[in-house]
Lab assay of single mutants.
Amino acid sequence: MRSPRTRGRSGRPLSLLLALLCALRAKVCGASGQFELEILSMQNVNGELQNGNCCGGARNPGDRKCTRDECDTYFKVCLKEYQSRVTAGGPCSFGSGSTPVIGGNTFNLKASRGNDRNRIVLPFSFAWPRSYTLLVEAWDSSNDTVQPDSIIEKASHSGMINPSRQWQTLKQNTGVAHFEYQIRVTCDDYYYGFGCNKFCRPRDDFFGHYACDQNGNKTCMEGWMGPECNRAICRQGCSPKHGSCKLPGDCRCQYGWQGLYCDKCIPHPGCVHGICNEPWQCLCETNWGGQLCDKDLNYCGTHQPCLNGGTCSNTGPDKYQCSCPEGYSGPNCEIA
């Protein structure tokens, strides 16, 4: 077999650049994923090309098998939009790539799955459409700058595939050579959905506090709520009108309100015997008056200043008058 000629994957630097851009600016990249293909086995019993010639040398006159050299087999892949009637021409609109030389006439790579040499990765940054057309071609490398490479066999497949970690196996069982391969579509990290176009990256910072479920939905951490999980859940009972919080379990009062639940107004400074319904009010309790509710309107009842059976009459805020019984006098009937 001729010395292998290595063929790198098509578009790999571009895919790395796209992945970097997506990581830095995830909101700009609407989708991100990759179409993967792995060659599993190849069977070319006679070492022939599609045109019937030998990959190298002439045929044995007896059994008609190619004798001089085995094929240097590598694969090309073209991925494009779905076609009900597949045409070989036209651009590979979803991507293209190739393997290096991975074997001779016949080989089996099932035991070495995950080997990069027999895998082609086609990254995409558009919403995966699920339906596709795939062209797979086996080629013989001439290892010659003058002699062109020659095609051994080709296969085409049109179908639908959803993103999954599971592989789907396909076979080419007609023509001079048979080969088996597997395909799958996977979303990149933080991308979800059938189109790999739903973005969700767990975070716990100013912009949100959430994890992501298997469908890419945000699940808020304990103590947080809202579409972006950036609204803290305040202390139970915290007034929704007069209290708020920036951290879970907190209850910060608005100006003019106080209390554990921010449901108590702050009265006017200096208010003595008054209450409030709104901040800075001083609504006097019964029998109290004045701007600060510090004037006693029922001095008689509060202090009972009249002595010796005198009768007390309220005459104004903090004022009274005693009517003394016979034989007593003085402001409080204290003089006998």
Results as ranks from 00 to 15, higher is better:
residue 2 R to S: 08
residue 3 S to A: 14
residue 5 R to L: 14
residue 6 T to R: 15
residue 8 G to A: 01
residue 8 G to S: 15
residue 8 G to C: 15
residue 11 G to V: 15
residue 17 L to P: 00
residue 17 L to V: 05
residue 18 L to H: 01
residue 19 A to S: 13
residue 21 L to V: 00
residue 22 C to R: 02
residue 22 C to S: 06
residue 23 A to G: 03
residue 25 R to L: 15
residue 25 R to G: 03
residue 29 C to F: 14
residue 33 G to C: 12
residue 34 Q to K: 08
residue 36 E to A: 04
residue 36 E to V: 09
residue 39 I to T: 00
residue 39 I to M: 03
residue 41 S to C: 02
residue 42 M to L: 07
residue 44 N to D: 02
residue 48 E to A: 01
residue 51 N to S: 02
residue 54 C to F: 14
residue 61 P to A: 15
residue 61 P to R: 15
residue 63 D to V: 12
residue 63 D to Y: 13
residue 64 R to H: 11
residue 66 C to R: 12
residue 68 R to S: 07
residue 69 D to Y: 11
residue 70 E to K: 08
residue 74 Y to D: 02
residue 75 F to Y: 02
residue 78 C to W: 00
residue 78 C to G: 02
residue 80 K to E: 12
residue 81 E to D: 11
residue 82 Y to F: 13
residue 86 V to F: 13
residue 88 A to T: 11
residue 94 F to I: 09
residue 95 G to C: 00
residue 96 S to A: 06
residue 98 S to C: 04
residue 99 T to A: 02
residue 100 P to R: 11
residue 101 V to L: 13
residue 104 G to V: 05
residue 105 N to T: 15
residue 105 N to Y: 06
residue 106 T to I: 08
residue 110 K to M: 12
residue 110 K to T: 15
residue 112 S to G: 06
residue 112 S to I: 10
residue 113 R to S: 02
residue 114 G to C: 12
residue 114 G to V: 05
residue 114 G to A: 15
residue 115 N to S: 01
residue 116 D to H: 13
residue 116 D to Y: 12
residue 120 I to M: 07
residue 123 P to L: 07
residue 124 F to Y: 02
residue 126 F to C: 11
residue 126 F to I: 04
residue 134 L to F: 01
residue 135 L to F: 09
residue 136 V to G: 00
residue 136 V to A: 02
residue 139 W to G: 02
residue 139 W to S: 00
residue 140 D to G: 13
residue 140 D to V: 07
residue 142 S to R: 12
residue 143 N to I: 10
residue 144 D to V: 11
residue 144 D to G: 06
residue 146 V to G: 13
residue 148 P to R: 04
residue 150 S to G: 10
residue 153 E to G: 09
residue 156 S to A: 14
residue 159 G to C: 07
residue 161 I to V: 07
residue 163 P to A: 15
residue 165 R to W: 14
residue 166 Q to L: 11
residue 169 T to S: 11
residue 169 T to A: 09
residue 172 Q to E: 11
residue 172 Q to L: 15
residue 172 Q to H: 07
residue 173 N to H: 11
residue 175 G to V: 11
residue 175 G to S: 03
residue 176 V to F: 10
residue 177 A to S: 14
residue 183 I to S: 01
residue 184 R to H: 01
residue 185 V to G: 02
residue 188 D to A: 12
residue 195 G to R: 09
residue 195 G to V: 03
residue 196 C to R: 03
residue 196 C to S: 01
residue 197 N to Y: 11
residue 199 F to Y: 04
residue 200 C to W: 03
residue 201 R to H: 10
residue 204 D to A: 13
residue 205 D to H: 13
residue 206 F to L: 13
residue 206 F to V: 15
residue 207 F to S: 07
residue 209 H to Y: 03
residue 211 A to P: 10
residue 212 C to R: 10
residue 220 C to R: 02
residue 223 G to C: 09
residue 227 P to R: 09
residue 229 C to W: 00
residue 230 N to H: 12
residue 232 A to V: 06
residue 233 I to L: 11
residue 234 C to W: 14
residue 235 R to G: 15
residue 240 P to T: 01
residue 245 C to G: 10
residue 245 C to R: 09
residue 246 K to T: 08
residue 252 R to W: 09
residue 252 R to G: 12
residue 253 C to W: 02
residue 255 Y to S: 09
residue 257 W to R: 05
residue 257 W to L: 05
residue 258 Q to P: 02
residue 271 C to F: 00
residue 273 H to P: 01
residue 274 G to C: 00
residue 274 G to S: 01
residue 275 I to L: 07
residue 277 N to S: 06
residue 279 P to H: 07
residue 279 P to S: 10
residue 280 W to G: 12
residue 287 N to Y: 00
residue 289 G to R: 04
residue 290 G to A: 05
residue 292 L to V: 04
residue 292 L to F: 08
residue 292 L to H: 02
residue 293 C to Y: 00
residue 294 D to V: 04
residue 296 D to Y: 00
residue 302 T to I: 01
residue 303 H to P: 03
residue 309 G to E: 09
residue 310 G to A: 07
residue 315 T to S: 14
residue 317 P to A: 13
residue 318 D to N: 08
residue 321 Q to L: 13
residue 323 S to T: 05
residue 325 P to L: 14
residue 326 E to V: 14
residue 326 E to Q: 03
residue 332 N to H: 11
